[in-house]
Design a protein around this nucleic acid. Structure first.
Lengths: 153, 153
DNA sequence: TATTGTTATACTCTATAACTATA
DNA sequence: TATAGTTATAGAGTATAACAATA
């Protein structure tokens, strides 16, 4: 059941856990499709989106992504080779580097973000109007509670 | 924003799209953590779970997973080497093979499935009782509608 | 000594293209 | 010709371990 793709179920009688797995698969698929349409891998798209918020250090990014620093090195090498982000020196700490979006990176990031928003909108719009706000707040609640008690214990 | 990990937001004022992205990230993370705890990659766990439902052909699995047949060959090579599934001949079509779980594969699959259910339960349980059924049905509705109009057009 | 980041190596997952064997 | 599956090759993403430079 928890390996199920979206195309094999009864869906109206879906228990919540199975529903969450299928929703995850669905959103993941949309994220992958939109990324690909912008000639990005999902991880690259995520990196660009994070960098919209401002420059970050390598270790900081690794921690945000839950991967080792060495993985970030490779990821940055590829994104830098494509001209979407740059490493630059950090004044005051000669070990560290700052990762910043280039102009092309900003364009790519916001184009991706815009299309992702539209795609998610098509998912959300058909929700009956009277259910929408409660759905939003239930999702927000789940996410918020998991900030407090990180499930990865 | 759409690159955000779960650890950086206001969460109570989360719009639905951003909430869905973070929920996806959250469930993905749980799936990865539980997989790892069973010494499986997420894709391997998914394969085992699908096979609980009975034997499948390689092309059938490739289609379910949305990958090329060649990717399934590699995936099966590794899962078979670990003793979790087997290829066997299909009577009546000498080109085809059937993929079946071994006893060890069934054990691994159901152990994973059980722990995944428990982990998702911890996500769902804190939802206020009066919201739970509507949440379930809203999720089911999203998933169902996307079976009808596949978002990947 | 601790931290920041890189290099080297290996493995999984994936795609594409070319191929074999059967239908 | 079409379908089922494999092989070969290449690239992305990841982990681990060893390393350099700086704090």
């Amino acid at each position: 059941m928890y390996g199920s793709s979206v195309n094999e179920t009864w869906a109206e009688q879906l228990d919540t856990g199975t529903g969450l797995i299928q929703l995850m698969t669905l959103v993941q698929g949309i994220y992958a499709t939109v990324s690909e349409r912008h000639d990005l891998t999902p991880v690259q798209a995520r990196l660009l989106c994070v960098l919209i918020g401002g420059p970050r250090g390598m270790a900081e990014l690794a921690q945000m992504f839950g991967v080792e620093k060495a993985a970030l090195t490779g990821l940055m090498d590829r994104i830098e080779k494509r001209g979407f982000a740059e490493r630059s020196a950090v004044p005051g700490d000669r070990r560290a580097v700052q990762v910043t979006l280039t102009a092309a990176g900003r364009r790519a990031a916001s184009a991706f973000h815009r299309e992702m928003g539209a795609a998610l909108g098509r998912l959300i719009d058909p929700i009956p109007a009277e259910d929408r706000e409660q759905f939003r707040s239930t999702v927000a609640g789940i996410v918020m509670r998991c900030r407090t008690s990180p499930s990865s214990e």
